[in-house]
Simulated scan of single mutants.
Amino acid sequence: METISDFLVKIDNPEHRAQLEDVFNWIKEEFPNLNSKIAWNQPMFTDHDTFIIGFSVAKNNFAVSPEAVVITRFSEAIKAAGYTNTANLIRFPWDKPVNYDLLKDLIEFNISDKADCETFWRK
């Protein structure tokens, strides 16, 4: 698997595939400077070779992984949006509309906070 398209075709449910494709297209439009890649069998977006946000798929949701510090910082907004999370991911249920405002805030924070980061992950 080398591209996001390769990842998407492996999603069996066509509605889930379409929803995640919409999310990826939105990211590409909103943040054209981000690069997409597949690593650890998951689609992710990077900025100057540093991790910004990653995605995975489960039966009831897709998960967004922006790194633990971001989830901690936005924990109240995540709860207010009706999402659940662990220390490392936020669950976006397939049966709810995507909260693009929250997604934008997560990505913008990581781009800004990691502007001078010289490693893939935060240290």
Rank of each mutant, 00 (worst) to 15 (best):
D47Q: 09
E15D: 15
N85Y: 15
L103S: 03
A63S: 15
L89W: 03
E15N: 15
D95H: 15
N41T: 08
R73G: 05
I53C: 00
I111N: 00
F31G: 03
H48R: 10
Q19R: 14
R91A: 07
R91H: 12
I78T: 04
W94T: 15
P93A: 13
I27E: 00
N60V: 13
Q19V: 07
N99M: 14
A63H: 08
L103C: 08
I78P: 02
E29G: 03
A18F: 11
S36L: 12
K28A: 10
V57G: 02
V9T: 05
A63E: 09
E76L: 12
T46A: 04
F24L: 08
P32N: 10
D6P: 06
D49G: 12
L89H: 11
F92H: 12
S5H: 07
H48M: 10
F31E: 01
L106R: 02
F31T: 06
G54F: 04
D12M: 07
W26H: 11
D22K: 02
F74K: 03
R91Q: 14
V98W: 10
D12L: 09
L89C: 13
L102Q: 02
S65A: 14
F24V: 07
I27L: 07
P66Q: 05
T50H: 13
S112M: 10
E30Q: 15
I78C: 03
E29Y: 08
E15I: 13
I71S: 01
T72Q: 09
F92W: 05
I53E: 00
L8R: 00
Y100A: 02
E15P: 06
